[in-house]
Design a protein around this nucleic acid. Sequence first.
DNA 1: CCCTGTCAAGTCACG
DNA 2: CGTGACTTGACAGGG
Length: 298
Amino acid sequence: MKIGYPCINQRIGCSSGRTFRLRSYSEKRHIETVAGNLDCLLSVLQFNVEHGLLFFRITSDLVPFASHPICSYPWHDVFADRFREIGAFIGEHRIRISMHPDQFVVLNAGDPGVVVNSIRELRYHADLLDLMHLDRSAKIQIHTGGVYGDKEQSMHRFAGRYDDLELPIRRRLVVENDDMRYTVQDCLQLHEDTGIPVLFDAFHHELNGSGEPAGETAALCSGTWRPDDGIPMIDYSSRQPLDRRGRHAETLDRGHFRKFLAETMPLDFDLMLEIKDKEKSALLAAEIAAGDRRLYQA
DNA sequence: CCCTGTCAAGTCACG
DNA sequence: CGTGACTTGACAGGG
């Protein structure tokens, strides 16, 4: 099990997702921003290796506006060497990588323009991982999308669009249950229809499931990953006490986390901690998991 | 320096 | 119909 956190390291004082307003766009500004983001990404990955955190989600803002028409210079070529160096570091230290495009990627949208933009955005994510020469275990996780008043038809539309995707995208894409609309059961159905691996989000499942036990549900999702997809990924969080429904915890809830570990114990997976204080909780979780798993193996 | 309106993009719930 | 939430606030202009 590798443990990780998404996008931002709060300790080392740089951001790999710096951006700027579209109206401030210039090629010079863009190149400077991306160069800074890549430097920071490597620093964060170095920190992670030094601290035993070998799973990381790369921010979608690494290359701002990458799928926007305004970004028309060949950034792939400009930064090819840098991407390769970072990818080599990732490979050398066996770091697991994920990316999570934001809510604007809606593969099953009714509006063809939204679908075109979504595929452009997915192509950017796939290009980035390809430029780093990562194998297909580096994943891009998305949600199913909208329901539009007819879930069955909307799932069917997702399946058709997935089947039609170009291979560099399709080989990396995994689908994750969300907290409002598409449950794990829905995602498992999509796997049946298309073969897409299912990324289990334990927190979303608590909010948007029928009480199926986490361990069994995680095992079902694990069965959807092929060997060259890498070992399954799972997203974990708990609810921020007293806060609104879907709010992620500010810091790791030890009791909740140990219960989750116990429930899923026989399974191997890479665990993404979607907790607000980032590497702080990831470090704590790694410590707890190491202890509990040692206990389990004894 | 601090404050805050606004930011490329979609969907849906809520009031 | 307008606003806020989402996985993640933070840029940029004005005071």
